[in-house]
Design a protein around this nucleic acid. Structure first.
Lengths: 115, 115
DNA sequence: AAGGGGTTGTTCAGTTGTTGAACGCGAATT
DNA sequence: AATTCGCGTTCAACAACTGAACAACCCCTT
């Protein structure tokens, strides 16, 4: 099961850079090759991207992964879901920071430059 | 390897509530029993908590896990580290939200009540 | 046209991390 | 004494992830 975050990052990366290889995607997003391969297949299976033929001087058998119309639609949808989650995280993290600041001693607080 | 977050949450929870059983800690923090057991052992091994004898009406063979002086010190240290990481996360998330907002369409943006 | 070198997508055995049912123990209850 | 109950502990089973190895393909040289 691909998380919203992963889907978002993949669709975003692929849309911006269709000519990336799976290895380059892996490096860019900090994922393992196996995981990227699994995910790309899943995206192909869902019909969100398709693999066109792409060739340039250095890449030998690389595909160009391009977003389908369905993929574009999904990207919008997943981006919105992901944004909502991030906004929630934002609130949570604010609360967590507040709590943490209360638990940090005065001398420690001076070390940081907060408050 | 215990993460700073896990260490922080455990020390914090145990300090506030020494009489919690491993199962209660697991439930409170959303962890599995096995994981809590593993972590508690690690904390004991490090000498940050010690297991006193504790008995009440409903608990049969429960320990009272209480923070040692070293544990208290470590809690302060880990809390500070964790706070720093959260402050960084806070910045990161702000940037991520900014990016996400730019990628969301106008109609979608209206659905949320942002900007 | 044959072959070597290089880069790709793909595979999959091995590793790592996690889970929670089951166990033995001791205290409480019957 | 026998049973029950809740505790900490264990560990086989499951799930997730990794990256070295493989086959396919293209390009280039001979």
């Amino acid at each position: 099961m691909l998380s919203d975050e992963l889907r978002y990052q993949l669709l975003r990366t692929i849309e911006r850079n269709p000519e990336l290889t799976q290895r380059q995607i892996a490096k860019e997003l900090g994922l393992s090759l196996g995981k990227v391969n699994y995910c790309v297949k899943a995206l192909l299976d869902k019909g969100w991207i398709k693999a066109g033929n792409f060739k340039n001087s250095s890449n030998k058998r690389a595909y160009a992964y391009i977003l389908t119309p369905k993929g574009l639609e999904e990207k919008g949808s997943v981006t919105l879901r992901f944004l909502k989650r991030k906004l929630q995280e934002y609130e949570d993290i604010q609360y967590a920071i507040e709590q943490l600041q209360n638990e940090v001693t005065e001398s420690q607080r001076k070390e940081l430059k907060i408050l």
